[in-house]
């Protein structure tokens, strides 16, 4: 399978790329890792007239701690997250997720920015970012802005990134207190999208009371879902069995999965319930 014809540019600066994207408007698509876009182009689900390859722009790939944030460059490859010491120490959730994203070869190319900007509800980073209460930096020709992850996903393959803009970085606030996070997805085989996935990030105070929590769900809703009722069920509790059971039950009720080859609605709700419970317990163990 070969994509239909298109023009290709590989600008070497961000300014050049933004100028190009502004001139081309909706004819252009940004090429990052390409492991979602190129398969779609091969199947002719996407037929952009112009690809703007941002792989040659320096300075978009990094993982660093700055002030109260962990900041990740949009072009950071999945493999670089897997191998980052900072990530391993504070955000094991990325290691949980990275191991389950596609396979090693794809992770050598796939980028964290692309995973989010593609806007696919089946991707894993959206739920992880919701749990971590991340913000996304969107850069345009005249300004750049930070957008909460909760306002980022607008619908089917649609995000807050507008024409002429590039997602350039992701920042995650450092938690105060004892913090733990975890992610798991059920998949039929390596490389498959999630049947359902659950990301949990928990902060506890010294007495073991939950002071902050984020729960994100993968591929069980039209857009990546923040399980707010589940979060509320945990805040202020000591994460006792009853609180965890409530949170798991709410997550399974509040998502809207669809029937497909990966399972029925009922089956997926049960997976969500079980995974939510397990991920809360795992995050809690990591926090302590």
């Amino acid at each position: 399978m070969i994509p239909s014809s298109f023009e290709y540019s590989a600008p070497s600066t961000l300014d050049e790329a933004l100028k190009m994207l502004n001139e081309l408007g909706d004819e252009a698509k940004i090429l990052a890792g390409g492991h979602s876009l190129i398969p779609m182009m091969k199947l002719r689900f996407a037929e952009p007239e112009h690809l703007v390859d941002i792989n040659n722009i320096p300075g978009l790939s990094y993982v660093k701690e700055e002030g109260e944030y962990l900041i990740i460059g949009a072009m950071t490859r999945e493999v670089e997250l897997e191998e980052s010491d900072i990530v391993a120490a504070k955000f094991p959730i990325f290691l949980d997720a990275a191991k389950l994203i596609a396979d090693p070869q794809v992770r050598n190319w796939g980028t964290i920015g692309g995973n989010l900007a593609h806007g696919d509800v089946a991707n894993d980073h959206p739920a992880v970012m919701i749990a971590l209460d991340a913000e996304v930096e969107i850069t345009g020709q005249n300004e750049s802005r930070w957008v909460s992850i909760n306002e980022f996903f607008m619908g089917f393959y649609t995000t807050a990134v507008q024409e002429g803009e590039i997602l350039t970085a992701i920042r995650i606030p450092n938690a105060s207190g004892k913090n733990g996070n975890s992610y798991h997805k059920n998949e039929r085989k390596v490389g498959d999208y999630a049947t359902a996935g659950v990301a949990v990030n928990i902060t506890l105070d010294d007495s073991g009371t939950c002071t902050a929590v984020g729960i994100g769900l993968t591929n069980v809703n039209p857009t990546p879902l923040k399980a707010e009722r589940s979060e509320q069920a945990l805040i202020g509790t000591k994460l006792d069995d009853a609180a965890i059971a409530n949170a798991a039950q709410y997550a399974s009720e509040d998502c809207k999965p669809s029937d497909d080859l990966r399972g029925s609605v009922d089956y997926k709700r049960r997976i969500v319930k079980t995974l939510t419970k397990r991920m809360i317990i795992k995050a809690m163990e990591r926090a302590n």
Binding site: M1, Y8, A10, L31, G34, H35, I38, P39, K42, L51, D53, N55, V79, A102, D103, P104, Q105, V106, N108, W109, G191
Partner: peptide
């Protein structure tokens, strides 16, 4: 031809990649 099977795996600057899902111009 869908980046699932890995038969097309090659190394690009030492990193393994599935050559069916990468453009030659890249």
């Amino acid at each position: 031809d869908t980046s699932s099977c890995g038969a097309c795996t090659i190394l690009i600057d030492g990193k393994s990649a599935k050559s069916c899902t990468i453009l030659a111009v890249q």
